[in-house]
Design a protein around this nucleic acid. Sequence first.
RNA 1: GGCAGGUUGCCCGAGUGGCCAAAGGGAGCUGACUGUAAAUCAGCCGCGCAAGCUACGGGAGUUCGAAUCUCUCACCUGCCA
Length: 307
Amino acid sequence: MGLNRLIVVAGPTGAGKSELGLELAEQLDGEVVNADSMQLYRGMDIGTAKLAAAERRGVPHHLIDVLDISARASVAAYQTRARAQIEDVLSRGRTPVLVGGSGLYVSAVVDEIQFPGTDPVIRGQLEAELAVEGPVALFQRLRQLDPVAAAVIEPANGRRLVRALEVIAVTGRPFTATLPVRSRPRYEAVLVNLDLATELLDRRLEQRVSRMVAAGFLDEVRALDAAGLREGVTASRALGYPQMLAVLDGVADLPTAAAKTVQLTRRFVRRQRSWFGRDARMQRLDAESGGLADRVVRTARAGTAAS
RNA sequence: GGCAGGUUGCCCGAGUGGCCAAAGGGAGCUGACUGUAAAUCAGCCGCGCAAGCUACGGGAGUUCGAAUCUCUCACCUGCCA
């Protein structure tokens, strides 16, 4: 039977989250809910290391293949869907297992975050302004309107400045530029940060990209290109995809593109670590050690009994 | 064999006597993070806690002082043979 609580498997790319998630789902009568911003996209399979249907061992997977590559992803929309999905799984008496390495997405599910609305017109204006005048102009304005937010947003971070100003314009209130305090997670979640020694992980990333290429990554991107990948604001930025497009355009060769992808992934992993690493609620598990699923199940059950 | 050019920190690359441990970029490391988050951005980046030490192909000089000038050796490049 289900556990009546959420299990979260987070951690850097390539550590083995999908597999662990699968094992946990099997042991806890669970269903996997995706927390990977790129696996949301239909057609991005090889490059996102999405588990093929046949590899899911009959475990239901949710929030995979739910967006067209032309759609832009949004944490707010994800939050709504993911929570609804989790509640649905819980309501059926099963255990939701949230699996993914997108830090903000995981946080959106587990923490008390409310994302203020957006306005395409205002956003457009701000982005235009950013492009023309640069971030400093926006920063000056933010400092006037919301000194608190300005104090924590880097003056050069155009993306965040635009959003902060947008929120102020839309809501008429200051922008909360800091993450909420990490308190008790929603759904009494048990959080796992699956990681492993840098040298090992780096090596795995190399193998992982080699496998992707061997599995036809380039062909996948060729097909997506025809379907409008370049126009997808979010999708076109997924690791490896721009690199494969460069090959299709004849401006890079495959080995170079693959190497670049490995390098970018490695860098991304560092960022993921800096995100998950400081979350004290997360149980850090070494992917190299054995009995991972059992250990998680044990803590999950113990926690339930205690609470 | 002759003439010309080059050799700079992990890589590329600026620098022509002091303001140079040496611009800039890349790579690497650390970190931030509320609607594109596989995004966006920041700091560090020869060694040393420091005094200081070691560094601009090797060696020898000139000079108060050299990555920068001279000589020489090595290797690379272009043109002439």
